[in-house]
Amino acid sequence: MHLLFATSIVPDGALASGYEIANAAIIAALRRAGARVTVIGFTWPGKPASDPQNTIVLGAVDVRTESASSLQKLAWVAKALLSGLTFASVKLRVVSDSEVQAAVERAGPFDGYVLNSVQFAGAFESLFGDRPSIFVAHNVEHSSALQNAAAAGGLFQRMLFRREAKLLKVIEARLCRRARFVFTLAEEDRSALGVGSDDRSAMLPLVTRAEPPAQKTLRRIDCDAALIGTWTWQPNRIGLDWFLDKVVPHLRPDFRVRIAGSVPPGVISTHPGVEFVGRVPDAQAFVRSAAVIPLISTSGSGVQLKTIETFELGLPSVATSHSLRGIDHRPVNCVVADDPVAFAGALEAATANVRDVDGSAFHRRQVKALDAAIRLGLKKLDPIRQEVFA
Results as ranks from 00 to 15, higher is better:
Val182Lys: 06
Lys379Ile: 08
Gly153Leu: 04
Pro294Met: 03
Ala337His: 12
Ala214His: 10
Asn139Tyr: 12
Ala291Asp: 07
Val248Asp: 05
Leu251Thr: 09
Glu20Asp: 15
Ser89Ile: 10
Leu206Glu: 07
Ser126Met: 04
Asn333Cys: 09
Gly153Asn: 01
Val77Gly: 09
Leu15Met: 15
Leu168Trp: 00
Trp76Thr: 02
Pro109Gly: 07
Leu115Gly: 12
Pro331Thr: 06
Leu315Ala: 04
Asp12Gly: 10
Gly112Glu: 06
Ala285Arg: 13
Ser117Lys: 11
Thr310Glu: 01
Gly359Thr: 09
Ile268Gly: 07
Arg158Met: 12
Phe362Ala: 10
Phe362Arg: 07
Leu378Tyr: 12
Asp97Phe: 06
Val248Cys: 05
Leu168Asp: 03
Gly84Met: 05
Ile21Gln: 06
Ser98Gln: 07
Ala319Thr: 03
Thr232Gln: 02
Ser133Met: 07
Leu185Cys: 14
Asp241Pro: 07
Arg237Thr: 08
Gly261Ser: 04
Ala6Gly: 14
Val357Gln: 11
Arg252Thr: 14
Val95Trp: 08
Gly273Val: 02
Leu175Asp: 05
Arg375Ile: 03
Ala349Glu: 13
Ser269Gln: 01
Ser301Glu: 02
Val354Gln: 03
Ile308His: 02
Gln304Asn: 15
Arg131Gly: 05
Glu105Met: 06
Gly229Met: 04
Leu175Gly: 00
Arg36Gly: 10
Ala202Leu: 00
Val10Gln: 09
Leu295Asn: 12
Cys334Leu: 08
Ala361Cys: 13
Asn116Trp: 08
Ala35Val: 11
Leu146Trp: 01
Pro48Leu: 06
Ser191Phe: 03
Thr230Asn: 15
Asn23Met: 14
Gly377Ser: 00
Leu4Trp: 09
Asn333Pro: 01
Asp198Leu: 12
Arg174Tyr: 02
Ser89Val: 02
Leu167Met: 09
Gln304Thr: 14
Leu227Gly: 01
Arg177His: 06
Leu155Met: 13
Gln215Ser: 15
Trp44Ser: 05
Leu146Phe: 01
Val277Asp: 05
Gln366Trp: 05
Glu125Thr: 13
Ala202Gly: 08
Val140Thr: 01
Gly261Trp: 04
Ala60Met: 08
Leu155Trp: 13
Arg219Gln: 13
Lys166Trp: 03
Gln215Thr: 15
Leu30Met: 15
Ala369Phe: 00
Arg252Cys: 14
Arg174Val: 07
Leu146Thr: 03
Arg256Asn: 11
Arg385Asp: 05
Val247Glu: 00
Gln53Ala: 15
Glu188Gly: 13
Ser301Gly: 04
Ala346Glu: 14
Gln304Asp: 13
Val267Glu: 02
Arg355Cys: 14
Phe42Lys: 15
Leu240Thr: 00
Asp338Leu: 08
Ala149Asp: 06
Arg180Leu: 00
Ile9Tyr: 07
Val104Asn: 00
Phe362Gln: 04
Arg177Glu: 11
Asn139Glu: 15
Ser117Leu: 13
Thr298Ile: 11
Ala152Thr: 11
Leu92Gln: 10
Phe276Leu: 13
Val140Asp: 01
Pro132Asp: 08
Lys380Gly: 02
Ile9Cys: 00
Lys306Ser: 14
Trp233Ala: 05
Ala210Trp: 02
Glu125Pro: 01
Phe243Val: 04
Ala88Trp: 04
Arg200Phe: 12
Ser98Pro: 00
Leu175Phe: 01
Ala152Ile: 13
Glu125Ile: 07
Leu85Val: 09
Gln366Asp: 06
Thr351Gln: 08
Val10Ala: 11
Ala121Phe: 10
Leu313Ile: 03
Ile228Thr: 09
Phe120Ala: 02
